[in-house]
Design a protein around this nucleic acid. Structure first.
Lengths: 136, 136
DNA sequence: TACTATTTGTTCGTATGTATA
DNA sequence: GTATACATACGAACAAATAGT
Protein backbone atom coordinates (compact mmCIF):
# COMPACT_ATOMS: atom_id res chain seq x y z
CA UNK A 1 0.00 0.00 0.00
CA UNK A 2 1.27 3.44 -0.79
CA UNK A 3 0.11 7.01 -1.10
CA UNK A 4 -2.14 7.79 -4.05
CA UNK A 5 -1.73 11.41 -4.96
CA UNK A 6 -4.73 11.36 -7.24
CA UNK A 7 -7.08 9.97 -4.62
CA UNK A 8 -9.58 12.32 -3.07
CA UNK A 9 -8.76 10.81 0.32
CA UNK A 10 -6.45 13.27 2.07
CA UNK A 11 -2.84 12.20 2.27
CA UNK A 12 -2.89 12.21 6.05
CA UNK A 13 -5.83 9.80 6.12
CA UNK A 14 -4.09 7.52 3.66
CA UNK A 15 -1.04 7.64 5.91
CA UNK A 16 -3.18 6.73 8.92
CA UNK A 17 -4.68 3.79 7.01
CA UNK A 18 -1.22 2.66 5.99
CA UNK A 19 0.23 2.79 9.49
CA UNK A 20 -2.88 1.21 10.98
CA UNK A 21 -2.57 -1.74 8.62
CA UNK A 22 1.05 -2.21 9.64
CA UNK A 23 0.02 -2.25 13.27
CA UNK A 24 -2.76 -4.78 12.71
CA UNK A 25 -0.51 -6.91 10.53
CA UNK A 26 2.15 -7.03 13.23
CA UNK A 27 4.75 -5.24 11.15
CA UNK A 28 4.75 -2.63 13.90
CA UNK A 29 4.42 -4.82 17.02
CA UNK A 30 2.82 -3.74 20.27
CA UNK A 31 5.00 -1.54 22.46
CA UNK A 32 7.47 -1.03 19.62
CA UNK A 33 8.38 2.45 18.48
CA UNK A 34 7.15 3.51 15.06
CA UNK A 35 9.61 5.10 12.66
CA UNK A 36 10.13 8.77 13.46
CA UNK A 37 7.93 11.40 11.86
CA UNK A 38 10.84 12.48 9.69
CA UNK A 39 11.48 8.89 8.56
CA UNK A 40 7.84 8.26 7.73
CA UNK A 41 7.77 11.59 5.96
CA UNK A 42 10.76 10.74 3.78
CA UNK A 43 9.92 7.10 3.12
CA UNK A 44 6.45 7.90 1.86
CA UNK A 45 7.26 11.18 0.22
CA UNK A 46 4.81 13.24 2.23
CA UNK A 47 5.22 16.24 4.48
CA UNK A 48 5.81 15.92 8.18
CA UNK A 49 2.50 17.65 8.63
CA UNK A 50 0.63 14.79 6.98
CA UNK A 51 2.47 12.28 9.18
CA UNK A 52 1.61 14.23 12.30
CA UNK A 53 -2.05 14.46 11.38
CA UNK A 54 -2.09 10.72 10.70
CA UNK A 55 -0.56 9.99 14.10
CA UNK A 56 -3.14 12.29 15.70
CA UNK A 57 -5.89 10.14 14.19
CA UNK A 58 -4.25 6.94 15.47
CA UNK A 59 -3.83 8.46 18.94
CA UNK A 60 -7.53 9.35 18.95
CA UNK A 61 -8.25 5.73 18.08
CA UNK A 62 -6.13 4.59 20.97
CA UNK A 63 -3.73 2.72 18.72
CA UNK A 64 -0.57 4.68 19.47
CA UNK A 65 0.83 6.97 22.11
CA UNK A 66 3.23 9.83 21.60
CA UNK A 67 5.58 11.48 24.03
CA UNK A 68 7.72 14.49 23.32
CA UNK A 69 11.22 13.58 22.30
CA UNK A 70 10.33 9.93 21.74
CA UNK A 71 9.02 8.11 18.74
CA UNK A 72 5.34 7.20 18.84
CA UNK A 73 4.69 3.74 20.15
CA UNK A 74 2.09 1.09 19.43
CA UNK A 75 -0.14 0.96 22.49
CA UNK A 76 0.43 -2.25 24.40
CA UNK A 77 -2.71 -4.34 24.74
CA UNK A 78 -3.97 -4.51 28.32
CA UNK A 79 -6.16 -7.18 29.84
CA UNK A 80 -8.58 -5.32 32.05
CA UNK A 81 -11.12 -6.95 34.31
CA UNK A 82 -14.77 -6.59 33.37
CA UNK A 83 -16.76 -4.07 35.37
CA UNK A 84 -19.25 -5.59 37.75
CA UNK A 85 -22.64 -3.88 37.54
CA UNK A 86 -24.77 -3.63 40.70
CA UNK A 87 -28.47 -4.55 40.44
CA UNK A 88 -30.31 -1.64 38.88
CA UNK A 89 -27.04 0.05 37.97
CA UNK A 90 -26.18 1.41 34.57
CA UNK A 91 -22.93 1.87 32.71
CA UNK A 92 -22.09 4.41 30.05
CA UNK A 93 -18.98 4.42 27.92
CA UNK A 94 -17.79 7.82 26.73
CA UNK A 95 -14.67 9.70 25.80
CA UNK A 96 -13.34 11.92 28.55
CA UNK A 97 -13.13 15.60 27.71
CA UNK A 98 -9.64 16.95 27.53
CA UNK A 99 -9.12 18.40 31.04
CA UNK A 100 -10.67 15.25 32.48
CA UNK A 101 -8.32 13.11 30.41
CA UNK A 102 -5.32 15.03 31.73
CA UNK A 103 -6.69 14.89 35.26
CA UNK A 104 -7.11 11.12 35.12
CA UNK A 105 -3.72 10.76 33.46
CA UNK A 106 -5.12 8.89 30.49
CA UNK A 107 -3.68 8.60 27.01
CA UNK A 108 -5.63 10.00 24.12
CA UNK A 109 -8.08 7.54 22.65
CA UNK A 110 -8.94 5.86 25.95
CA UNK A 111 -12.69 5.81 26.67
CA UNK A 112 -14.00 5.70 30.23
CA UNK A 113 -16.85 3.64 31.66
CA UNK A 114 -19.06 5.52 34.01
CA UNK A 115 -20.94 3.25 36.41
CA UNK A 116 -24.07 4.75 37.99
CA UNK A 117 -25.39 3.07 41.08
CA UNK A 118 -29.05 3.10 42.11
CA UNK A 119 -28.18 5.36 45.05
CA UNK A 120 -26.94 8.06 42.67
CA UNK A 121 -23.22 7.60 43.20
CA UNK A 122 -21.01 7.10 40.17
CA UNK A 123 -17.62 5.56 39.53
CA UNK A 124 -15.45 6.07 36.49
CA UNK A 125 -13.01 3.51 35.08
CA UNK A 126 -10.63 3.83 32.17
CA UNK A 127 -11.48 1.34 29.45
CA UNK A 128 -8.18 0.53 27.85
CA UNK A 129 -8.08 -1.41 24.65
CA UNK A 130 -8.02 -5.05 25.62
CA UNK A 131 -7.10 -6.70 22.38
CA UNK A 132 -5.58 -5.85 19.06
CA UNK A 133 -8.40 -6.83 16.74
CA UNK A 134 -9.41 -5.25 13.50
CA UNK A 135 -12.81 -3.68 14.09
CA UNK A 136 -15.48 -5.26 11.89
CA UNK B 1 27.42 39.42 5.59
CA UNK B 2 24.57 38.64 7.90
CA UNK B 3 21.14 37.05 7.93
CA UNK B 4 18.42 38.95 6.11
CA UNK B 5 15.09 38.07 7.62
CA UNK B 6 13.18 39.69 4.79
CA UNK B 7 14.97 37.74 2.09
CA UNK B 8 13.13 34.97 0.34
CA UNK B 9 16.25 32.84 0.65
CA UNK B 10 15.72 30.47 3.58
CA UNK B 11 17.68 31.26 6.70
CA UNK B 12 19.54 27.95 6.58
CA UNK B 13 20.73 28.63 3.03
CA UNK B 14 21.89 32.09 4.02
CA UNK B 15 23.77 30.49 6.92
CA UNK B 16 25.42 28.03 4.55
CA UNK B 17 26.46 30.87 2.23
CA UNK B 18 27.86 32.77 5.18
CA UNK B 19 29.90 29.88 6.54
CA UNK B 20 31.05 28.90 3.05
CA UNK B 21 32.41 32.39 2.47
CA UNK B 22 34.31 32.25 5.73
CA UNK B 23 35.85 28.97 4.67
CA UNK B 24 36.87 30.26 1.25
CA UNK B 25 38.17 33.49 2.76
CA UNK B 26 40.35 31.57 5.18
CA UNK B 27 38.59 32.91 8.25
CA UNK B 28 37.83 29.28 9.05
CA UNK B 29 41.06 27.57 7.99
CA UNK B 30 41.36 24.03 6.75
CA UNK B 31 41.27 21.37 9.45
CA UNK B 32 40.15 23.92 12.03
CA UNK B 33 36.98 23.37 14.02
CA UNK B 34 34.05 25.66 13.25
CA UNK B 35 32.28 27.35 16.12
CA UNK B 36 29.80 25.01 17.78
CA UNK B 37 26.24 24.86 16.54
CA UNK B 38 25.08 26.65 19.67
CA UNK B 39 27.62 29.42 19.15
CA UNK B 40 26.72 29.90 15.50
CA UNK B 41 23.08 29.85 16.49
CA UNK B 42 23.52 32.55 19.11
CA UNK B 43 25.92 34.76 17.20
CA UNK B 44 23.66 34.98 14.17
CA UNK B 45 20.39 34.95 15.98
CA UNK B 46 19.02 31.88 14.26
CA UNK B 47 17.75 28.56 15.54
CA UNK B 48 20.04 25.60 15.94
CA UNK B 49 17.95 23.88 13.29
CA UNK B 50 18.95 26.45 10.69
CA UNK B 51 22.60 25.99 11.60
CA UNK B 52 22.32 22.22 11.35
CA UNK B 53 20.62 22.39 7.97
CA UNK B 54 23.34 24.75 6.78
CA UNK B 55 26.05 22.34 7.94
CA UNK B 56 24.24 19.50 6.19
CA UNK B 57 24.47 21.44 2.93
CA UNK B 58 28.18 22.06 3.46
CA UNK B 59 28.78 18.39 4.25
CA UNK B 60 27.01 17.43 1.03
CA UNK B 61 29.34 19.82 -0.79
CA UNK B 62 32.33 18.17 0.82
CA UNK B 63 33.43 21.35 2.55
CA UNK B 64 33.11 20.22 6.15
CA UNK B 65 32.98 17.03 8.17
CA UNK B 66 31.08 16.45 11.36
CA UNK B 67 31.58 13.89 14.06
CA UNK B 68 29.37 13.43 17.07
CA UNK B 69 30.70 15.10 20.18
CA UNK B 70 33.10 17.24 18.17
CA UNK B 71 32.70 20.51 16.40
CA UNK B 72 32.43 20.38 12.62
CA UNK B 73 35.74 20.81 10.85
CA UNK B 74 36.76 22.34 7.57
CA UNK B 75 37.76 19.42 5.34
CA UNK B 76 41.48 19.38 4.89
CA UNK B 77 42.51 19.62 1.26
CA UNK B 78 44.14 16.42 0.07
CA UNK B 79 46.58 16.07 -2.76
CA UNK B 80 45.54 12.93 -4.48
CA UNK B 81 47.33 11.44 -7.41
CA UNK B 82 45.60 11.68 -10.75
CA UNK B 83 43.99 8.51 -11.98
CA UNK B 84 45.85 6.86 -14.81
CA UNK B 85 43.48 5.75 -17.55
CA UNK B 86 44.38 2.61 -19.53
CA UNK B 87 44.05 2.79 -23.31
CA UNK B 88 40.43 2.42 -24.24
CA UNK B 89 39.39 2.80 -20.60
CA UNK B 90 36.72 5.15 -19.37
CA UNK B 91 36.20 6.95 -16.10
CA UNK B 92 32.95 8.08 -14.54
CA UNK B 93 32.62 10.36 -11.53
CA UNK B 94 29.55 9.87 -9.39
CA UNK B 95 28.33 10.20 -5.83
CA UNK B 96 28.29 6.92 -3.91
CA UNK B 97 24.92 5.85 -2.60
CA UNK B 98 24.62 5.85 1.14
CA UNK B 99 25.42 2.21 2.03
CA UNK B 100 28.34 2.31 -0.41
CA UNK B 101 29.62 5.49 1.22
CA UNK B 102 29.52 3.85 4.63
CA UNK B 103 31.09 0.70 3.25
CA UNK B 104 33.98 2.62 1.70
CA UNK B 105 34.30 4.71 4.85
CA UNK B 106 33.93 7.99 2.98
CA UNK B 107 32.79 11.34 4.29
CA UNK B 108 29.64 12.86 2.91
CA UNK B 109 30.23 14.97 -0.16
CA UNK B 110 33.04 12.81 -1.55
CA UNK B 111 32.48 11.63 -5.13
CA UNK B 112 34.05 8.46 -6.43
CA UNK B 113 35.75 7.84 -9.76
CA UNK B 114 34.86 4.57 -11.37
CA UNK B 115 37.48 3.40 -13.84
CA UNK B 116 36.32 0.86 -16.42
CA UNK B 117 38.97 -1.11 -18.20
CA UNK B 118 38.59 -2.53 -21.69
CA UNK B 119 38.53 -6.03 -20.22
CA UNK B 120 35.37 -5.17 -18.28
CA UNK B 121 36.92 -4.85 -14.83
CA UNK B 122 36.29 -1.73 -12.81
CA UNK B 123 38.05 0.06 -10.00
CA UNK B 124 36.63 2.70 -7.75
CA UNK B 125 38.62 5.51 -6.17
CA UNK B 126 37.47 8.17 -3.77
CA UNK B 127 37.88 11.61 -5.31
CA UNK B 128 38.61 13.86 -2.38
CA UNK B 129 38.61 17.56 -2.85
CA UNK B 130 42.11 18.47 -3.91
CA UNK B 131 42.06 22.20 -3.54
CA UNK B 132 40.11 24.86 -1.79
CA UNK B 133 38.98 26.87 -4.77
CA UNK B 134 35.74 28.73 -5.27
CA UNK B 135 33.90 26.91 -8.05
CA UNK B 136 33.41 29.17 -11.07
C1' DT C 1 39.83 5.76 36.82
C1' DA C 2 35.91 8.67 37.36
C1' DC C 3 33.44 12.81 36.89
C1' DT C 4 31.97 16.88 34.41
C1' DA C 5 31.33 19.92 30.62
C1' DT C 6 30.87 20.35 25.84
C1' DT C 7 29.00 19.05 21.58
C1' DT C 8 26.46 16.70 18.12
C1' DG C 9 22.28 13.47 17.23
C1' DT C 10 17.42 12.66 17.60
C1' DT C 11 12.79 13.67 18.34
C1' DC C 12 8.47 15.91 19.19
C1' DG C 13 5.75 20.52 19.86
C1' DT C 14 4.52 24.61 17.78
C1' DA C 15 4.12 28.46 14.63
C1' DT C 16 4.28 30.83 10.18
C1' DG C 17 4.10 31.38 5.18
C1' DT C 18 2.76 29.79 0.74
C1' DA C 19 0.36 27.11 -2.60
C1' DT C 20 -3.50 24.43 -4.12
C1' DA C 21 -8.02 22.26 -4.47
C1' DG D 1 -13.40 30.79 2.59
C1' DT D 2 -11.77 26.37 4.28
C1' DA D 3 -9.12 22.28 4.37
C1' DT D 4 -5.11 20.16 2.86
C1' DA D 5 -0.15 20.03 2.09
C1' DC D 6 4.61 21.29 2.24
C1' DA D 7 8.73 23.93 3.63
C1' DT D 8 10.76 26.58 6.87
C1' DA D 9 11.88 27.98 11.56
C1' DC D 10 12.52 27.91 16.52
C1' DG D 11 12.28 25.63 20.99
C1' DA D 12 12.82 21.99 24.38
C1' DA D 13 14.37 17.77 26.12
C1' DC D 14 17.12 13.99 26.22
C1' DA D 15 20.69 10.53 24.37
C1' DA D 16 25.32 9.58 23.09
C1' DA D 17 30.01 10.59 22.09
C1' DT D 18 34.08 13.25 23.05
C1' DA D 19 37.37 16.00 25.64
C1' DG D 20 39.32 17.89 29.72
C1' DT D 21 40.07 17.70 34.72
Amino acid sequence: MSIDRRSHTPVYRQMANLIRERIYSGEYPADAPLPSEATLSQEHGVGRDAVRQALALLRAEGLVTTERGERSRVRAALNRAAVELPPGGTAIARMPHDPERVDRDLDEGVPVIEVRHPDGTTEVYPADRTELIRPA
